[in-house]
Amino acid sequence: MQYMNEFLTIALVHLVAVASPGPDFAIVVRNSIAYGRRIAIFTSVGIGLAILLHVAYSLVGLSVVIATTPWLFTTFSYLAAAYLLYLAFGALRSGPPKGDAVIESTQPQKGISAKKALWMGFLTNGLNPKATLFFLSLFTAIIDINTPFSVKLGYGIYLALATGLWFCFLSYMLSTSKVAELIGRKGYWLDRAMGVLLVGLAAKLVLG
């Protein structure tokens, strides 16, 4: 129980961070609308797994190296921006259904595997330098240096599970019948909006 206050602080900070619109939010919304609940959930799982990556290098101190080495941090930023632009391109190409497809416009598209969705979520979060900064601040400013490694690892597992569950919940809510009906035939506008958001996030990464 001696680490309960530390854990509650971490949980609160993480809640604010994960609920804020960002690349993870945009890609989960986009995949939920475009491909349906199953693909969005696999994307969410990928995001949760990427959190373990951040936790791993934070525990060994690599996050400090990345954040304090300008060229390395810049490289991460440009890689992340390029990947977000790639995702944005696909989202911005979304258009209204044609011909007989209008009838089935509320059904998710096909053409993306669960494995690809998993990697999409993993890369979106894993390449995000903002996540590096978040975990750097978490493991240096909030978590006490004397906190045992096993406790820090427990924090990391919680963060990964909480992140994955949050986005799985978001995926579920976005793909319920009422929400799907609300989006209806104009769902491609939301897809395009997510594309614009991804472009904006990519620009923010590059321009600071």
Rank of each mutant, 00 (worst) to 15 (best):
T43L: 02
P21S: 11
S44T: 03
P96C: 10
D100N: 12
V65I: 15
A91M: 09
F135E: 04
S63H: 13
K186H: 13
Y78P: 04
Y35I: 11
Q2C: 01
T9R: 11
E181A: 14
T68M: 10
G187C: 09
L123V: 09
Y188Q: 04
L85T: 07
T124H: 10
A91Y: 02
A50I: 11
S137C: 08
G48M: 07
A114D: 14
T68F: 03
L15V: 11
F169K: 03
F42D: 09
L62E: 00
P21V: 07
A88P: 10
M1H: 12
V179D: 08
L59H: 01
Y3S: 09
I103D: 12
G90H: 07
G111H: 06
S63C: 04
L85C: 15
G184Q: 03
R185P: 00
A17Q: 02
R185G: 15
C168Q: 05
F73L: 15
I143E: 02
V179E: 01
A34W: 08
G121K: 09
Y155K: 12
S94H: 11
R192E: 04
W71L: 14
G195W: 00
F122N: 06
L127G: 10
A193I: 12
V199F: 05
S63G: 07
G121S: 00
F135H: 10
F42R: 04
F7C: 06
R192I: 07
A180V: 15
W71S: 14
G90W: 00
F169W: 12
L198M: 15
W166I: 06
I33S: 12
L59S: 00
Y172M: 13
S32D: 09
L53E: 11
G184E: 08
S137F: 12
L92S: 07
S150A: 14
G99Q: 10
S177N: 14
L72E: 01
L165G: 08
L133C: 10
Q109F: 12
T132Y: 03
T163A: 03
S77N: 08
I103A: 13
V60E: 12
S44M: 08
H54W: 10
V28C: 07
W189Y: 15
F139Y: 15
K130N: 11
A141I: 08
M4Y: 13
N31W: 01
K98P: 00
F25A: 05
L136Q: 02
T106S: 14
T163H: 01
K186D: 12
A117Q: 08
A82D: 07
L161G: 00
Y78I: 15
N5C: 00
Y35A: 09
S32V: 00
T106V: 14
L52N: 04
A11Y: 04
A202V: 07
K152Q: 14
H14W: 04
S94E: 13
G154N: 01
L59V: 05
D144L: 11
A162E: 13
A56S: 15
S171H: 05
E6P: 03
W71V: 13
S44Y: 06
R30M: 12
M1Q: 13
H54G: 03
L84D: 02
G111P: 05
A50C: 10
V55Y: 07
F139L: 05
A80M: 01
S32W: 03
L170Q: 02
F135N: 07
T147W: 01
